[in-house]
Design a protein around this nucleic acid. Structure first.
Lengths: 235, 235
DNA sequence: TAGTGGTCTAGACCACAGG
DNA sequence: CTGTGGTCTAGACCACTAC
């Protein structure tokens, strides 16, 4: 199992701090040479390190050392910018898509909509220190937020909803599972198809108990760590 | 991108219900033949499907169709057997290791122990319908639970602690991140090194605010889906 | 334009699973 | 014992990045 040996060697280099976060690894051919093996085997080792979260790739640009993960507390409302800043990271959000569409199967289900209802669909790329780490796909009930798309959408959406339409989110249902990037998302965040991801979906519910927004977040799986504290009454 | 085509073809077979959960895929050589390609490329496709969670492997036995995921609600105390039964699955737990050890770095940190403190270390294999899906590694403060290891350890541990030592867990701190199986765990749950996993660590805190137990659960990443509902006061 | 990563081929050997 | 999965080699071509 050469590729285990290689994986461990690179891992040690990283963990001993020889390689800084964000640094690029030598080319695959050079590495294969160094470890006296072929690219196929070398890539197997890299692939392990990727799944393990120690390195990541940017399509056709190469392999890079992962940054530390962003810690997310699911028991608090999620505001990307605040969370990132609080952890010393530089966040930015880019609106990738914003349009009015027919609700798809998932959004009709989670938002309890009738078929053919119109919803706003907003796709946003989230970056930390310049690197794309998450793509969020929002589906929002259109009738509750008229002219939403005429507003700036690169800030805190919950705040936008609250200030312009008095829409208050009081409850959130999460589902978290591990997944992979499909071609579309891989392309937009410059990752690769099949790279491991963490998929967090949220249903945002207002004070009246109506599901107003359905969000699917696709995280580079090594960019995030979920934390939370739960108290138990008694069971 | 042949392997994408192959991946999609197999995926469709699975999702259309042609292949039942738990069924074994044809041999790699047969599949490679079917898709008129080589094993290397075919394995690339299988690897994608594995990361995506649609299939899994058992070491040297082959590739199998995944079962549906177990839904876990993090806001409730976690009892493997009850959760599994409630979802129509057949759970079983096997004690793999139970010993008294010197606390390692992680456990001293999370349990706030002095170095060289003795802790009980219990490793348990968790199965659903006969298939190993999770390995849990427990570190428990020894002084609070004398003779713990003389008790049967294949049931609900929280209940055991409560009934024999009046230890009540009232709070739990979670951390969830995606990871991979190391050689040890891969072997014991018959998975393979580097297979993607979901790592849930829990710190169990008693009524006095003392961290009594530190548990690391290593889940086959496709075997689990985390759910939870959170209410927000206002932020 | 040179070098890189992404993809693919056509073999090979070994250790283990299952009959 | 046979076939399978796990691992590895030594090439190759293409599209894109970076210069």
């Amino acid at each position: 199992m050469q590729y285990i040996r290689i994986k461990d060697a690179i891992k040690e280099q990283i963990q001993s701090g020889q390689l800084a976060a964000g640094a690029k690894l030598p080319s695959e051919r050079k590495l294969a040479d160094t470890f006296k093996t072929t690219r196929v085997t070398l890539r197997e080792a890299l692939s392990l390190l990727e799944t393990d979260g120690l390195i990541y790739r940017e399509d056709r640009r190469g392999w890079f050392i992962s940054h530390r993960a962003l810690h997310l507390d699911l028991s608090l409302p999620f505001v990307f910018s605040s969370v990132a800043s609080a952890q010393g990271r530089v966040p930015s959000i880019e609106v990738h898509r914003a349009e009015s569409v027919m609700a798809n199967h998932e959004s009709t289900t989670y938002l309890s909509l009738l078929p053919f209802t119109e919803v706003f669909n907003i796709g946003r790329i989230h970056r930390l220190d310049g690197r794309a780490v998450m793509y969020a796909d929002h589906y929002v009930r259109a009738e509750r937020l008229p002219n939403l798309l005429q507003h700036p959408l690169d800030g805190n959406l919950a705040e936008l909803y609250r200030e312009n339409w008095q829409l208050h989110i009081s409850k959130c249902c999460y589902t978290v599972r591990s997944s992979t990037f499909d071609a579309l998302i891989a392309t937009t965040i410059k990752s690769t198809v099949g790279a491991p991801s963490l998929r967090i979906s949220r249903v945002h519910i207002d004070e009246a108990g109506v599901a107003q927004e359905y969000v699917i977040e696709h995280w580079r799986h090594n960019a995030i760590s979920l934390d939370m504290t739960v108290g138990f009454g008694d069971s």
